[in-house]
Simulated scan of single mutants.
Amino acid sequence: MNPLVTILTAIIAAEAVWWLVWVFLALARRKYSVFGVVLGTLAIWGTIAIFTIRASRYPFIIMPVGPLFTLVVLMIIPFIVLPSMVVIINEYQRGVLFRLGRLIGIIEPGFNIIFPFGIDRVVKIDLRTFTIDVAKQEVITKDNVPVLVDAVVYFNVFDPVLAVTKVANYTQSTTLLGQTILRSVLGQHELDEILSKRSELNEILR
């Protein structure tokens, strides 16, 4: 038997064990659909590997390509498939999972396994509080006095699904909404009220 084939066979055996680890990880994370696909892929991959190893030992077994080439391809496949199944979600994030374009649900922080090759797509949403500096706005007060005002907006995402599926760009939308509300609220008050009732106006704006 070719020594190179022996080395590749040992590597493939080690990769099979590594692949089984992923099968158990999918089962532990209760990703049963991913578990079934990974297990089925492992079965097909293992069957081809066993047949190829036998073909390298018994030359009378006919293969469309050489056993050595097939073993090299089989050795590379796990390095392509398995890493593309990993998604890490940070504690301050949530992942919105789409499968073939359909919304599946929210992925919690930590180590997650998904379908590879674009079948699953994860959009990560940051739940931390953002700060938006609203540029100076010219507001016409109730007594027709032009006033330049600026503001700071603090906001955070409370529903990641809505932030992805209902708004194209929630940060820009919040910025524009802050500018609109600032002009709308202050335009209902006279200049004296704006200067003397800042706390009350801040509460209204909030």
Score class of each variant (00 low, 15 high):
Pro83His: 05
Pro83Asp: 03
Met85Leu: 05
Val86Ile: 09
Val87Asn: 13
Ile89Thr: 05
Ile89His: 08
Asn90Tyr: 13
Glu91Cys: 00
Tyr92Pro: 03
Tyr92Gln: 13
Tyr92Ser: 10
Gln93Pro: 01
Arg94Ile: 00
Gly95His: 02
Gly95Met: 03
Gly95Thr: 02
Phe98Gln: 10
Phe98Cys: 03
Leu100Gly: 10
Arg102Cys: 07
Ile104Glu: 13
Ile106Leu: 09
Ile107Pro: 00
Ile107Asn: 06
Glu108Gln: 14
Glu108Cys: 12
Glu108Arg: 13
Pro109Ile: 04
Pro109Cys: 12
Gly110Thr: 14
Gly110Gln: 10
Phe111Cys: 08
Phe111Ser: 15
Asn112Cys: 06
Ile113Ser: 15
Ile114Tyr: 02
Ile114Thr: 12
Ile114Pro: 00
Phe115Ser: 05
Phe117Leu: 12
Phe117Ala: 10
Gly118Arg: 12
Ile119Gln: 06
Ile119Val: 08
Val122Asp: 04
Val122Ala: 06
Ile125Asn: 01
Ile125Ser: 03
Ile125Val: 12
Ile125Phe: 04
Asp126Pro: 01
Leu127Ile: 04
Leu127Glu: 08
Thr129Pro: 11
Phe130Asn: 05
Phe130His: 09
Phe130Ile: 12
Thr131Cys: 08
Thr131Phe: 11
Thr131Tyr: 07
Ile132Gly: 01
Val134Trp: 03
Val134Ser: 04
Val134Ala: 08
Val134Met: 04
Ala135Met: 13
Lys136Met: 08
Lys136Ala: 08
Lys136Phe: 07
Gln137Ala: 04
Glu138Lys: 13
Glu138Ser: 11
Glu138Phe: 03
Ile140Ser: 01
Ile140Gly: 00
Thr141Asn: 03
Thr141Trp: 01
Asp143Tyr: 00
Asn144Phe: 15
Pro146Asp: 00
Pro146Glu: 00
Val147Leu: 09
Val147Trp: 02
Val149Asn: 02
Val149Gly: 01
Asp150Leu: 05
Asp150Asn: 07
Asp150Trp: 05
Val152Leu: 07
Val152Asn: 02
Val153Cys: 13
Tyr154Lys: 15
Phe155Gln: 03
Asn156Leu: 15
Asn156Trp: 08
Phe158Lys: 14
Asp159Ser: 15
Asp159Thr: 05
Pro160His: 02
Val161Pro: 07
Leu162Met: 14
Leu162Glu: 14
Ala163His: 01
Val164Arg: 00
Val164Phe: 03
Val164Met: 04
Thr165Arg: 09
Val167Gln: 13
Ala168Cys: 12
Ala168Arg: 10
Ala168Ser: 10
Asn169Ile: 03
Tyr170Val: 04
Thr171Ala: 09
Thr171Lys: 11
Thr171Gln: 14
Gln172Gly: 09
Ser173Lys: 11
Ser173Trp: 13
Ser173Gly: 09
Thr174Pro: 08
Thr174His: 07
Thr174Val: 15
Thr174Trp: 06
Thr175Lys: 07
Thr175Gly: 14
Thr175Phe: 11
Leu177Gly: 06
Gly178Trp: 02
Gly178Phe: 01
Gln179Met: 15
Leu182Arg: 08
Arg183Met: 07
Arg183Trp: 04
Arg183His: 11
Ser184Glu: 10
Leu186Asn: 02
Leu186Pro: 01
Leu186Gln: 02
Gly187Ile: 08
Gly187His: 06
Gly187Leu: 07
Gln188Pro: 12
His189Ile: 15
Leu191Thr: 11
Leu191Lys: 10
Asp192Arg: 15
Asp192Trp: 09
Glu193His: 10
